[in-house]
Lab assay of single mutants.
Amino acid sequence: IRKQWHEDITQDLRNHLVHKLVQAIFPTPDPAALKDRRMENLVAYARKVEGDMYESANNRAEYYHLLAEKIYKIQKELEEKRRT
């Protein structure tokens, strides 16, 4: 379902936000690492998460909020795993 606010969101912005999700899960300073085949699954997962939020959000603010919440949860989980 195409929503009115979707018209304001460019593909570049969506790609940028997918990249932010990927960085939250696997922070790497090396952009070449993103071309690694093992990263493809991670990028696919991040695209799916972003797509789900894009579809479920009712406006741009909610879209950003859902993504920020997801990134926060991912970082929290990773922190907890590092501690144990």
Score class of each variant (00 low, 15 high):
Q4I: 12
T84F: 04
L13G: 13
V22T: 03
R82D: 12
Q11L: 05
Q11M: 05
K3N: 06
E50Q: 07
Y72S: 15
R83Y: 08
P29D: 14
R38T: 07
E79A: 10
A33T: 10
P29E: 15
R60D: 09
T28R: 08
E55S: 08
L21M: 09
D36A: 07
R14N: 05
M53I: 14
P29T: 14
I25S: 10
L17M: 15
M39V: 07
K3Q: 03
F26E: 15
A44W: 00
N59D: 13
L67Y: 05
K35W: 05
L67P: 03
Q75P: 04
A24E: 03
N41P: 09
H6L: 04
E55I: 07
R14M: 03
I25C: 09
E62T: 04
K3W: 01
A24Y: 05
K81S: 13
N58F: 00
L13R: 05
I1A: 09
K81M: 06
A61I: 06
I74D: 03
F26S: 15
Q75K: 14
L17I: 11
K81D: 10
D52M: 15
E62Y: 03
E69D: 12
R2T: 13
N41H: 11
L66R: 08
A32E: 13
L13Q: 11
I71Y: 01
E55T: 04
R37N: 07
D8G: 12
R37A: 13
R37T: 11
Q4G: 12
R37Q: 13
D36Y: 05
A68T: 13
D52F: 12
K70I: 01
I74R: 03
N59A: 03
T84R: 15
I9A: 01
R60P: 05
A33R: 11
Q23C: 07
I25T: 03
L13D: 15
H16R: 14
I9V: 04
L17W: 15
I1R: 05
Y54H: 04
N41I: 01
N15C: 01
S56N: 09
Q11P: 10
N58Q: 07
P31F: 13
G51F: 11
L67S: 03
R2I: 11
H16Q: 15
E69K: 13
K73T: 12
R37K: 09
D8R: 03
P29L: 11
G51A: 14
L42M: 09
V49I: 13
V22Y: 02
L66S: 06
L34C: 12
L78Y: 15
K81N: 10
P29F: 15
A46Q: 04
R14C: 00
L42T: 10
Q11R: 04
H19I: 04
R47M: 03
N58Y: 03
A32T: 12
L42A: 15
A33S: 11
K3V: 01
R82K: 14
V43W: 11
N15Y: 03
R47W: 02
M39P: 08
D30K: 05
S56F: 05
I71M: 11
R47P: 01
V43P: 05
A33G: 12
I74P: 08
K73V: 14
R83N: 10
A61Q: 14
E40D: 11
V43H: 06
R37P: 15
P31D: 12
I71P: 04
M39C: 07
A24C: 00
N15V: 01
K35I: 05
A32S: 11
E80P: 09
D30H: 05
G51I: 11
L21V: 03
Q11Y: 05
A61P: 10
H65K: 13
K76M: 11
A32Y: 09
W5Q: 04
A33N: 11
L34R: 11
I74T: 12
D30E: 10
L66I: 02
A44I: 04
E69Q: 11
R14V: 00
E50N: 04
L78A: 15
P29H: 06
K20I: 01
N41D: 15
L78Q: 15
T28F: 05
K73P: 04
A32I: 12
R83W: 12
H65Y: 06
D12R: 02
N41E: 10
Q4E: 15
E40I: 01
V49A: 04
A32C: 11
K70D: 01
K76P: 04
T10S: 09
M53V: 09
I1D: 06
A32P: 10
L42C: 08
E7H: 14
I25H: 15
L66H: 00
R47V: 02
E79M: 08
A61M: 10
